[in-house]
């Protein structure tokens, strides 16, 4: 076997235009997942009636099924639902006008929400109960105490796991090719389809993903240093 280095380089360059697509999918799903996850974690920690049960079911179903399955079900199911309702209520909006990447955004956000909720929940539980009590004791309301005292510490505690989940979503975003979104991996396939040098093309894709992952790791390390500033003492 001979590795065609010059094609590896060509493929690498040709993959770069697909990078924004991958990053978009990752950023959207991580941000939405973070918001969904926070609400789910709060409803579960505070055992909010109804929401708690819905959240528990949501987390177990989503974590219990593959990310690809979520995408497939949504891809097939959402148009049925939208067009069905559209017919009922006489909307002019049709499911064909949803861009393909929209399915990836929605589906991966739902996936990320379930995983993130557990990360956020564990982060919040890592914060000593005395912190919330002290905040209440000085007269803060629970929302104030959560925002100012609990969340910052929970974020610091959850950061290593959060970065893990972000990397997971980055790599998971490759599944978007199944709904014809041209991400880095799909682009590699397209690049290689002319000369059948799939090995070089996928190797180039791996390098791009590795680079993006290192970037996330570096950013996390920086952030970790910043949010953990208060732990630098040694006295307990």
């Amino acid at each position: 076997m001979k590795l065609d280095f010059s094609f590896l380089w060509t493929a690498f360059i040709k993959l770069l235009p697909a990078v924004p697509t991958t990053i978009n999918i990752t950023v959207v799903s991580v941000l939405c997942g973070f918001i969904i996850g926070t609400f789910v974690a709060l409803s579960r920690i505070y055992k909010v009636p109804v929401l708690n049960q819905i959240s528990t079911v949501y987390v177990t179903i989503i974590r219990g099924t593959p990310m690809l399955t979520h995408l497939m079900i949504l891809y097939v199911g959402l148009p049925l639902l939208i067009d069905g309702l559209g017919k009922e209520f006489g909307w002019s909006f049709r499911s064909v006008s949803i861009p393909m990447i929209g399915f990836a955004y929605i589906s991966f956000s739902i996936t990320a929400g379930a995983y993130f909720s557990e990360v956020i929940r564990s982060g919040m539980q890592a914060v000593n109960k005395g912190q919330l009590e002290a905040a209440h004791a000085i007269g803060m309301t629970t929302p104030q105490a959560l925002r100012r005292i609990v969340f910052p510490q929970a974020f610091a505690a959850a950061l290593p796991n959060l970065s893990n989940s972000v990397i997971g979503m980055l790599h998971g975003s490759t599944l978007a090719f199944t709904v014809s979104v041209v991400d880095i991996n799909a682009q590699a396939q397209i690049v290689a389809s002319t000369n059948w040098k799939f090995f070089e093309a996928y190797l180039a894709a791996a390098l791009v993903f590795w680079g993006l992952t290192i970037l996330i790791e570096r950013l996390t390390a920086l952030l970790e240093k910043r949010v953990n500033l208060y732990n630098r003492g040694g006295v307990a």
């Binding site: 009590e133 905040a135 000085i138 803060m140 104030q144 510490q153 949010v227």
Partner: peptide, 26 residues
């Protein structure tokens, strides 16, 4: 106001910020 057995200072805030917190927020 309460003074706790385990102190329960806000761990991510300095001594000054711990004392200021209630004054500013509450």
């Amino acid at each position: 106001a309460m003074v706790f057995q385990q102190y329960n200072l806000f761990r991510h805030k300095t001594a000054l910020e711990n004392v200021m917190e209630g004054l500013v927020i509450v």
